[in-house]
Design a protein around this nucleic acid. Structure first.
Length: 419
RNA sequence: GUGGGUGUAGCUCAAUGGUUAGAGCACCAGGCUGUGGACCUGGGGGUUGAGGGUUCGAAACCCUUCACCCACCCCA
């Protein structure tokens, strides 16, 4: 019979990677709560229209990367490819803007994109998503980058860099689009096929192309950054000033654009050279028109997402050492009856006790204890039961001694031997 | 969606078209009948990703398909 395997791009997460996921999540939660963020959980499945309207129907994500299907009721549904759209829907559906003047939200979960898998890219992947509604002051833009750096520092991450840019608002973008198209029309022969296509549909994406010719073509081009309107310019300058107050080092990358249509003004990306081609592991930006475009009041927003798989690839964070492990080796059915009382005593005090379920030779049990990295082994056989005691052996210290056979004194002896 | 690479034991990998597909690690047992890591001996494990074809004979060659890895693209 054929073995059933995971779908392409879908994975089981376990062992060390699972531990890292938890560390990343716990660390993030810790700082989110300190800075006043509330956790929400939103559905993985939404109406397709939610994503086409927010992300933009000319984007790659919407055009070819969504898991979309028609359900039994005839509705077109989509597994979320990103979290912002759903969080905005939540924000409007619950009328959060009436309940509080500023909403700081975060959510953690799986996203789905139908892409070809490669290093750091899967069809089901995990994001830690942060969104702030109701703050137009650029202080929050800087605060979010500071929050990111707190998390990354706590995870002992080295060798990452933060790039920032401004993609302006509708006002500056409209004027700039014509300028850019006019410029690239003179450089047609240098552009790759994709970029010729982009020239028609979304010329700003040309700046993101990594082809040599296209990078060259952009060298003398006007940058949107240099044509920002007064308002956007002031916003960015004061964003940089706040970044300085938070002592965050970021480099300006005028080439940086985002693949989702809703971004305005501040955008940023955190990258690592240790990741291969998919080197951005955190990215985000401001979206001052999105809430209104989704049918709500004109409320500004800003947010970012952490790619958990990617961050987990580059962090060396380890969970601090656990409580010592004690292994109970028993010989015979009578001895086995002592597992329960000793186990209860250990667990109720927060200590770990492992044992074998089947009766095995002492040698086998000792080997097993060693492979589990147990600090102590308790040995209990007929002789010990007769004398009403148990042997406590230290695997590292290589000493052993006899201890009265009752749960309290056993645990007490383990605790005092741990130091 | 495009390109390149790879699929053999739980893991890492061998095997000129030619006997019954091997090794290391891991696992289990014994040596040591009640004491771990080293050593020795033995043991369990495989539809060689799947399906078809060529051949006296295929893990190997051809076709199809699936999966994994890397890159393009795109993005977290």
């Amino acid at each position: 019979m054929e073995k059933i395997r995971t779908l392409r791009g879908f994975r089981d997460i376990f062992g060390e990677e699972m531990e890292k996921f938890r560390i990343i999540e716990d660390t993030s939660r810790h700082y989110f709560k300190l800075l006043g963020f509330n956790e929400i959980e939103i559905p993985a499945l939404e109406k397709t229209e939610l994503f086409t309207r927010s992300i933009g129907d000319a984007t790659d994500i919407v055009e070819k990367e969504m898991f979309t299907f028609v359900d039994a009721g005839g509705d077109s549904l989509t597994l979320r490819p990103e979290a912002t759209a759903g969080v905005v829907r939540f924000y409007l559906q619950e009328g959060m803007y009436v309940k509080e003047r500023v909403s700081k939200l975060f959510t953690i979960g799986s996203m789905f994109r139908h892409e070809r898998p490669q290093k750091g890219r899967f069809r089901q992947f995990h994001q830690i998503d942060v969104e702030v509604f109701g703050v137009s002051d650029p202080f929050i833009d800087a605060e979010l980058l500071w929050l990111i750096s707190l998390i990354l520092d706590k995870l002992m991450l080295e060798g990452y860099s933060i790039e920032v840019n401004s993609v302006g608002c509708r006002v500056c973008r409209n004027g700039f689009r014509d300028k850019v198209v006019a410029y690239f029309e003179t450089k047609r022969d240098m552009l790759c096929e994709d970029c010729l296509r982009r020239l028609e549909r979304s010329p700003l994406r040309i700046f993101d192309c990594k082809k040599e010719g296209c990078i060259k073509a952009t060298e003398e081009s006007p940058f949107l950054f240099d044509s920002l309107c007064k308002d956007c310019n002031e916003h960015f300058d004061s964003f940089l000033d706040y970044l300085g107050q938070f002592k965050i080092k970021a480099t300006l990358n005028k080439r940086l654009v985002r693949g989702l249509d809703y971004y305005t003004k501040t955008v940023f990306e955190v990258t690592s050279e240790n990741l291969g081609a998919q080197k951005a592991f955190i990215a985000g930006g401001r979206y001052d028109n999105l809430v209104e475009e989704m049918g709500g009041p004109p409320i500004p927003g800003i947010g970012f997402a952490i790619g958990v798989e990617r961050l987990s690839l580059i962090t060396s964070a380890r969970r601090p050492s656990e409580v010592p492990l004690t292994y109970l080796a028993y010989l015979g059915k009578d001895a086995k009856r002592y597992i329960v009382p000793i186990l209860e005593r250990f667990v109720s005090s927060g200590y770990r006790l492992f044992y074998s379920y089947e009766e095995k030779s002492l040698k086998s049990q000792m080997r097993y204890a060693d492979s589990l990295n147990a600090e102590f082994v308790l040995i209990l056989g007929e002789d010990e039961i007769k004398k009403n005691l148990i042997i406590l052996r230290s695997m590292r210290g290589k000493w052993q001694k006899e201890v009265p056979l009752n749960p309290d004194s056993i645990l007490k002896e383990v605790i005092s031997s741990t130091l």
